[in-house]
Every structure is written in structure tokens, then in C-alpha cells.
Design a protein around this nucleic acid. Structure first.
Lengths: 332, 332
DNA sequence: ACCTAACTTTGAAACGATTCAATCTAGAAT
DNA sequence: ATTCTAGATTGAATCGTTTCAAAGTTAGGT
């Protein structure tokens, strides 16, 4: 059904070694022979069998990207960054989605191990550091994405959420707002906690300003709206005149509760700043000011770190932390 | 670094054939031996080399899913359906995102060909039917997703958009609305055109009702909002009292223009129905009534069709068309 | 004790590529 | 004409599995 290198060799009247050289080291072969072999390859419709190549070569050219929520725009952007970088390096990226299932996370890691992928980019869902350590010993390096390694065993790419919180708070303070509310939660989520702490630290420097926390049970549109309804009912004197949402989804919920009813104007009565700068932020009722994470760049960087480790397994893990960026639109 | 079946055989004191049988046909091996071999496998941390297995077995157990926009919730849901079905069948699904690049679409197809994947699920972006035909001849079947095969060469899974349009229009008519507007475009997109035609056909049966088309240049939130602003300015007598949006994003834009300003009430003054039932529909300002496409089921079905073709390459291509479903919330 | 049938186990061959030492050019230098 | 050299070509060995015919083992029936 599919022809092998042997068939090509026969057809072109050369040895299999020569065909292989045409494929992998064309410079070693005379240009006359290269042409002849190429012709045979085309005529026979030969396609290199990756399994055989990998078996002999001992290493694959594919990198796996494992995320727990492929629907999250942040991850798709990140994936794209990684893919672009991989293409440049001659690697291919395959994506797998664990759909927030620990079981599936493990079974994909099994698959990748059997496939001897060149490396793994993972935004972990369950507790996998141990498993990843085993993989590393086995010769498959991984890089953590959007999460730092607890024991510094793995390289990681993340964003400085503390700085992001500070930037957001400072922007609101810069607009002259002094009664600031933080909306988001649960506060156990590292990302949320860091953003809050960053904001608190910024407030320290502004004596007159206060920060109130409105904790939610999740960072969703719905929770944001619920919080917003509560805020709407507060007396004008007590009510914050600026809100910092833990992410854009929450911010959109806030907008719905505050603006949709026409009771308050954003940003005039109350300024709102989000986090993540998802695509939808631009087209919110009031275009959302937000803190952008360099998702594509993160993917690109993660891939580079992975390549470093793949080339030199003894390399010390590196931790790259990106700085978030303020994107000003209309809501604040 | 990684141990082979040979090492396991040596360690367990059996032949390589026996180890292989333990792995693939445990029933052929005495339970005593199975246990002993299993123990050696664990102690040595043996992991089957998929490349070698595939080389010898001649077939892989992975299926590729190629989409042009992994960020689209519709595709991620579909992917999940396919993954679930694949897991049941003992296959693994790997996802690749072409990011709306024809070049990348081709290079992924090349990769999958080299990897000899068992089959390909593809929602085509460029013109790939020819390439897919070649792959089929080569032994790799594909199934088209959300698009039907022009020349009936491939199996496909899609949704009856015409029926969806009819359902939407009938629902609005059932609410007693007679001045209906269709918002979406461009009308060249097959999906949009079919939905509109479905609505028109439904209107035929209701003599008193009229349908006005508000064509947009894309099915985005922004375009929806622009259209909504125009509609808002119309005189009450002329203005539609119900809108059918080509998809949920457009519907959300309409909501923003009509509700956010407080000028009109939805659904009291004007009913709105969307299409796709994306996750965000539930948490729109006014929870959106929509037409649901069975995305997960589509993925599942596509996988089943693919398996059929993989087992019997001479099988006639099948075309499965799903019926969409009305999801009633508050907007209509 | 012997034969048979059923069950276990063995080990060499095969899958298709890459590698590399060995052999073979062809042309330059002597 | 002979030697040398760099480049081109060869082909056997190898990667780690699976397969399958052949050989080995066991237990039951006579």
C-alpha cells in the first residue's frame, strides 16, 4: 500500500543508504543522484515512515502540550505561541486536552511516554510533579506553564500576578479613585491571591485609599454579576468608586450588573479593571480596561526552555516570570 | 536509559515472545508467568516503545483532529466528544490547530501521514479534498466535520442549518411575533444562508408575518451591536418585535445595543434568539434563547464514522446530518 | 506406562528507517 | 603512469516490538 525506502532505492537504482542520505543529508550525495532519487520518491508517492525513523533515531520531533481546559482563550493563545516557535525549530506540537480530569491527564502522559515525545509542555491540573520527575529520569523533559514548580525541579513560565495587581491598583489610584474594591475568589487560588496582594501593596503607598474585598466562589461571569448586584445596592458614600476584578469574566459580570440596569455609569460613577485581556474584553458593553498576559510569548518561551532541556538534560531548571501589561480601554 | 522488552525478558527469565504476549495476549500466558513478568516490568519501569510497536504492527492507535480555530467553543466541545468516544474504543486523539493557515493545514497533514495515524477528523479550512483523497488511497481515512463533502467522497458530520432556521422562526412566531428580523452575514457563508432560508420557509406558512434581513459583514459581537443600534433607532411601528441572530455572538451584540441603554426591554419589546448555544449564552445580560448544535455528539459520531472506514476502507461514505435543538431561556 | 490434546513457551524473522565503516569513484598532483 | 585525496556510494547491523511455526510441557484417558 505504501512504499518504503527500499522500493525507492530499487526504482532509482541506488542503495537504501543513498536514499536515506538524500532524505537526511543531501549534501553528502551528488546532485545528480539527489535528483534521480527525488524523482523516484515522487513517482512512487513515498512518505517516510515516522515510526521506523523514530525507532532507529531514538528521538521524536514532536512536542506535546497538555492543558486542562483547551476552551480557555488564554491557553489557545499560548498554544499558538508554542506552535509558532516549534515550527521554527522543526518540531511539531500536538495538543491534548485533559478536560479537568486527573485520570485523563495521566493517561495522556502515558501515551506521550509510549510515544517518546521529545518533551512536554504542561499546565498541570492534578498533582503530577512526581510523575513528571519519573518522565524526566526516563529522558522526557517537561516545562510547567502558568504555574511554578514547587520544588524547583522543573523549568516554568508564568506571569508575575503580584505585579499585575499592583499595576491595576495604581492605575485606579492614578484616576483619582480612593475607594477600591477587589472582586474575585476563592482566595486560595494562587493566581487570585497574588493579584490581590499586589493591589494591597500598591494601596500601602496611598494613605487615603481603602480596599474592600468582595470574595466570590469562582471567577465566572455569574459570580461577577452576583457581586455586582450587591455593590449596586450599597449607599453611594460607602460604595467603591473603582473595582479590580480578578479576571475579565468577573469584570464582565460586574458590567452586566452595574451598567445593564442603567443605574450606574462606567467609568464615571465606578471604574472597572479586569485581568487577562481576553478577546471578549474589547467588545464588552463598555470596552474593558484589563491587564494583559503575554500568552503567545509565554508559549514561545516555554518551548524554548523545553528545547534547552531536551538538548542538555543536566541543565538547571529555569524559572521565567513575565511582567503583565496594562491595556487601557474605556472602563477605567 | 529506558529498558526494552528484552531487558524485561532477561529479568523475568522468560523469552521476549512471552513478554510480548503478556502485554498483548495475556490469556495465552499462564497466570504465574504473567505475574512474574508484570513484576519485572514494574521493577524495571518498562514502558512499551510505541514506535517499534507501530512499525511492526503497521497501524497506530491515534487519531488526529485538525481544526482551523481551536479557540472556538464549538470545536472544543466537539473535540471533547471525539475524545470521549476514542477513549472507549482504545484510541487516543491528538489535536492540531491550523490557526486559519492553509500552509499549516498542509504541514500537519504531512505530519499525520508520516506518523501513519489511524485516521483524521478534519474541519477543513483550505481546499484539501484532493489531499485527503491521496491520504485515503494511502490508507488513512478522514471524516469531514461541520462541512459536507462536495463530491461525496468522504463521510461527514454536520448540522441541518435549514431546520435550525425553521425552528428559530417558528418559536418566534409561536410567541405571537410577526415582524421578524434576521441579523447575520455575510450571506455567502453556507451556514448563515441555510439558517436564513430555513427561517424564510417557516414564514411562508404564516401569512401575516414579515421577515427583514439585516446583513452584517461578519458574525461577531461588534457587528451585532452595530446592527442593533440601527434597529434601536427605527420607529416602533416599523421595528421588528423579534430578532433571529445568525449566531450567539451576534445575538450578544444585539443585546448590548438594545438592553444596555435601557431603551428597550428583551423579550417584552423585542425578542431575541441566537444560534450555537455557546457557554456564554447562559450568562448574557438577558440569558439567551438559542439553537443548540450537538457538538459533543457530533465529535462522537465523527469518530465512529472514522472507525468504520478504518475497519473497512471500501465502505461507502456516510453523511450524517444532525437536527438542532431549541433551548429556551429568557430572551425569547 | 503410553498416547493425545490442550496449553505454554520459545526464538528467529520481519517491520522501515538510519548509521557508519568499508569500498568505490574521479580527478589532481606528482 | 602512478599515487593520493576527497567525495560518493554501498550494505550490513541496528533500533524494539510483534508474530507465528515449532518445540516443550502438562494432565487426562486408556
Amino acid at each position: 500500500m505504501s512504499s518504503s525506502i527500499k522500493d525507492v532505492a530499487l526504482h532509482a537504482g541506488v542503495s537504501v543508504g543513498t536514499v536515506s542520505n538524500v532524505l537526511n543529508h543531501p549534501s553528502r550525495v551528488s546532485s545528480k543522484t539527489v535528483k534521480r532519487v527525488q524523482k523516484s520518491i515522487n513517482e512512487l508517492g513515498f512518505v517516510r515512515n515516522d515510526a521506523a525513523r523514530q525507532l532507529r533515531a531514538g528521538e521524536s520531533r514532536t512536542i506535546a502540550l497538555l492543558v486542562f481546559d483547551a476552551a480557555n482563550p488564554f491557553f489557545t493563545a499560548l498554544a499558538r505561541g508554542a506552535e509558532d516557535a516549534a515550527t521554527d525549530e522543526g518540531y511539531s506540537v500536538i495538543l491534548a486536552n485533559t478536560s479537568e480530569s486527573q485520570e485523563r491527564e495521566h493517561s495522556y502522559l502515558d501515551l506521550f511516554e509510549e510515544q517518546r515525545v521529545r518533551g512536554i509542555l504542561i499546565s498541570p491540573y492534578g498533582d503530577v510533579e512526581e510523575r513528571l520527575s519519573a518522565l524526566k529520569k526516563f529522558g522526557i523533559p517537561s516545562v510547567l506553564v502558568d504555574r511554578v514548580s514547587e520544588n524547583q525541579v522543573f523549568s516554568s513560565v508564568s506571569v508575575d500576578d503580584h505585579a499585575g495587581g499592583t499595576i491595576a491598583a495604581n492605575h485606579l489610584l492614578g484616576l483619582g479613585r480612593t475607594r477600591i474594591g477587589f472582586v474575585g475568589g476563592p482566595l486560595e487560588i494562587p493566581q487570585v491571591a497574588d493579584r490581590l496582594r499586589g493591589a494591597q501593596d500598591a494601596l500601602q503607598a496611598s494613605p487615603g485609599a481603602t480596599l474592600t474585598i468582595f470574595e466570590t466562589s469562582a471567577t465566572t461571569v455569574l459570580e461577577g454579576r452576583t457581586a455586582g448586584e450587591k455593590i449596586r445596592e450599597m449607599s453611594p458614600a460607602e460604595r467603591p468608586n473603582a473595582l479590580f476584578a480578578a479576571n475579565d469574566l468577573v469584570a464582565i459580570g460586574l458590567l452586566q450588573a452595574l451598567v445593564a440596569t442603567g443605574s450606574l455609569r462606567v467609568p464615571d460613577d465606578i471604574a472597572i479593571i479586569g485581568y487577562d485581556d481576553i478577546d471578549f474584553a474589547t467588545s464588552a458593553i463598555v470596552p474593558l480596561t484589563s491587564i494583559r498576559q503575554p500568552s503567545a510569548l509565554m508559549g514561545e518561551t516555554a518551548l524554548k526552555l523545553l528545547r534547552e532541556e531536551a538538548l542538555d538534560p543536566s541543565k538547571k531548571p529555569r524559572r521565567v516570570v513575565f511582567q503583565p501589561e496594562l491595556v487601557i480601554r474605556e472602563s477605567a
